[in-house]
Simulated assay, not measured.
Amino acid sequence: MFSVSVATSMRMADAAPPQFSQVTPDHAVSLPRDTGAHPDFRTEWWYATGWLTKPDGKPLGFQITFFRSATDNDHANPSAFAPTQLIIAHAALSDPSLGKLLHDQKSARAGFGLAYAKEGNTDVALDNWRLVRGVDGRYQVTVEARDFTLKFALTPTQAPLLQGENGYSRKGPLPAQASYYYSEPQLRVSGTIGRAGREEVVTGTAWLDHEWSTSVLAADASGWDWLGANLDDGVALMAFQIRSRNGAKVWAHAVLREANGETTQFNQDQVQFLPQRNWRSPRTDASYPVQSVLRTGTVEWALNPLQDDQELDSRQSTGSVYWEGAVTVSRAGKPVGRGYFELTGYVKPLKF
């Protein structure tokens, strides 16, 4: 969109690539300060997912994600046009009555008050899409996508959940293969969705993840399977596994926090994702294990999709295609909660 002078371009080409901060286990995540952006790290995202109930009682799933990505351009370049930080956003709505995912995406260089991720407190925006955290901890979400609008308040009902060791979350066999990561489960949703010029009041429950890192995946990793689930009794369940290019488990972790705050951690030997049924995309021909069993220790959780087609094609922004969908969670044949299941790297290995 904007041109850069020849002299500036030469300076950018000659400059050494920036040195990004690394994730280390001796750093403790501090909230609310760390709810804001961390521009010295290469990659960061704020990721809100949840289940909504319409006035007629029918369910919907939603996802809104903001990414901040630092580039290799010289971060000391004083030009306001220098593309040192990129802001990317995805939004999706799952409606079983349609049988397909409604989704949209945006991307832009940070700057000019139009695209930004502010430090110190969550405030990230891209044009008329915004996620902002108030001083009371409540989030406001505004998304005006191509086929729908989302206008929500996300109100905390529990304390944030620091993942891993006080927010240091291992993603591979090497200590540097890690991220800083916390979650806000059991968020109460209130607001509206709009489609075809008509707004509906919705309520629901959501999960918000905030994660930042520099070198998060092992060299042979192809992607991950991840679950964030709000259970009906107030329990929060998070689990993930990193997969290699041949499908083997590279790393895994899970955590279960009771409503009273008692937390149980599961190491990689105690976490398994067991595919039960695959769905093949008619667009990409990728096969996703949309119906799976998650095993944490001796407990099995059955994951069943709200609808099979929840594939999001973001090749115009992040360059990836992934399945990210609303799922019900059952235990011993009884429904116990709802969550979101993310499956990446099934079309091609994921790259940051």
Rank of each mutant, 00 (worst) to 15 (best):
L162C: 04
A239C: 14
D104G: 06
M12G: 02
Y182S: 04
S222M: 13
K334W: 00
D269P: 00
R138V: 15
R295V: 10
F62Q: 03
P59T: 07
A206Y: 13
G337Y: 09
Y168H: 12
Q85F: 06
A178G: 12
G99Q: 03
N77D: 15
R245I: 11
A16H: 04
E44C: 03
L303R: 00
R277L: 08
D104E: 08
G172Y: 08
G194C: 09
T53L: 05
E165I: 06
W207R: 12
R146D: 14
Q177V: 03
L217T: 01
V143M: 11
L131K: 07
N166P: 00
Q268E: 15
A248W: 00
P55M: 06
P83G: 09
R198E: 15
T35V: 05
G325W: 03
L256I: 06
V135F: 02
Y116R: 10
A221P: 04
W224H: 10
F240G: 13
V23L: 02
L98Y: 09
R109D: 01
S179D: 04
W212S: 05
L274M: 12
V250N: 11
A80I: 03
D209A: 03
E262C: 04
I242R: 09
K118H: 10
I64R: 01
W46K: 05
V290D: 01
R243S: 11
L256Q: 12
G297S: 11
Q272G: 04
A239S: 15
P349Y: 07
H27L: 09
P96M: 08
R283T: 14
D123S: 05
A248K: 08
L126D: 02
R280T: 15
L274P: 08
S30H: 11
D232K: 07
T205C: 10
S30I: 13
A7T: 15
V29G: 06
N166L: 10
G120W: 10
R33L: 14
T24F: 00
T149V: 00
W129F: 07
F41I: 09
Q177K: 11
R243H: 10
P305L: 00
G172W: 07
Q241M: 09
P305I: 00
R188L: 15
V216M: 11
A110N: 02
A28W: 08
V293P: 08
Q241A: 15
N128I: 13
F2Q: 09
R315A: 01
A145D: 06
Q177S: 04
T149S: 14
F20H: 12
F2K: 13
T157H: 06
L256K: 11
F2M: 08
P335V: 08
T122C: 15
P96K: 01
K54N: 07
S97R: 13
R42P: 02
A48S: 13
Y168E: 05
A15H: 03
A125T: 08
